[in-house]
Design a binder for these strands. Structure first.
Length: 219
DNA sequence: ATGGTTGCACAGCAA
C-alpha cells in the first residue's frame, strides 16, 4: 500500500499541483492538511474523477484535513474525541483495507512560550491520550501528517540556529516521542539514517533553493 | 531586533 501525506496550504490554491502529483503517482491513500476550506468547497469531483474516495474535515481559512483513498473507507472519525464544539479541525481517521489511518495537522505553536505553544503541547498530549483510549496497538495502523516537530537535530538544516526554537524545542520533541512510544515507528528514519532530508522550507529567504529545511512531516 | 513570503476573510492574522 502506498500512502502519502501533504500539507497543501489551501487545496484550492494548490489544486493543479495536487491533481498532477496524485494523477502521476497514484498513491492508494493521500492525507492532506491545511485544506483551508469548508467541506462543501472541497474539489471532491476532481479527485473522484481520478478514482478517489474523498473524506474531509474542513474549516474556513485555517486548518482542515482530508483523506483521499482508492480503496473503500470505513469508520471515519472527525476530530479528537475530547474536542470541544467549534474546535480547530486537525484530525481525520479512517479504516482502509484493515489499516487504521490517522491523519493529523498538529498546531504550529508560533513561538516557544506563547499561548499557541501551550495549545500545541496540550494537543500533542491529547493525541497520545487518544491512542491510549481508542487505538489497538496489535493491529495495523498508520499515523501521518504535519507534526510541526523536527524530532532530532539531524532533521534540521542548521541545528544551532534552531536550538530551543519552535518546531525543535525539548518539550515539543518529548511530546512527539511520547506519541511514538505508544508503539509507532518513524518509517522514514527506519530506512534513511542520514540528515539533510526535509519536508518543509520557509517561503522566505530562498530557503527551498538553499535546502534550508526541517523534517516535520512524518509517517 | 526586524523582516523576509504566502494564503485567506482584502486586513491583519497565521504559518
Amino acid at each position: 500500500m502506498k500512502i502519502a501525506t501533504w500539507n497543501v496550504n489551501s487545496i484550492t490554491a494548490r489544486l493543479i499541483r495536487v491533481l498532477e502529483w496524485v494523477g502521476s503517482n497514484r498513491p492508494d491513500i493521500i492525507c492532506l492538511q491545511e485544506i483551508k476550506c469548508i467541506d462543501q468547497k472541497f474539489p471532491t469531483g476532481e479527485f473522484e474523477q481520478l478514482g478517489y474516495r474523498v473524506e474531509t474535515y474542513g474549516q474556513q481559512t485555517y486548518n482542515g484535513v482530508a483523506i483521499l483513498s482508492l480503496l473503500p473507507v470505513s469508520e471515519i472519525q472527525r476530530g479528537l474525541p475530547d474536542d470541544e464544539d467549534g474546535a480547530q479541525r486537525r484530525l481525520i481517521a479512517a479504516t482502509i483495507d484493515s489499516v487504521r489511518v490517522i491523519n493529523v495537522y498538529v498546531p504550529n505553536g508560533q513561538a516557544v512560550g506563547t499561548d499557541k505553544y501551550l495549545f500545541k503541547l496540550d494537543w500533542l498530549s491529547r493525541l497520545r491520550n487518544f491512542f491510549d483510549a481508542h487505538c489497538d496497538v496489535t493491529k495495523p495502523l498508520v499515523l501521518c501528517g504535519d507534526f510541526n516537530v523536527a524530532p532530532e537535530d539531524r532533521d534540521v538544516h542548521n541545528p544551532a540556529l534552531w536550538e530551543g526554537k519552535i518546531l525543535c524545542s525539548e518539550a515539543e520533541r518529548a511530546a512527539l516521542k511520547k506519541i511514538q512510544d505508544w508503539g509507532l515507528v518513524d518509517i522514514f528514519r527506519k530506512h534513511q539514517p542520514e540528515g539533510g532530508y526535509f519536508t518543509w522550507w520557509d517561503y522566505r529567504q530562498a530557503a527551498f533553493r538553499l535546502n534550508h529545511g526541517l523534517r516535520i512531516d512524518h509517517l
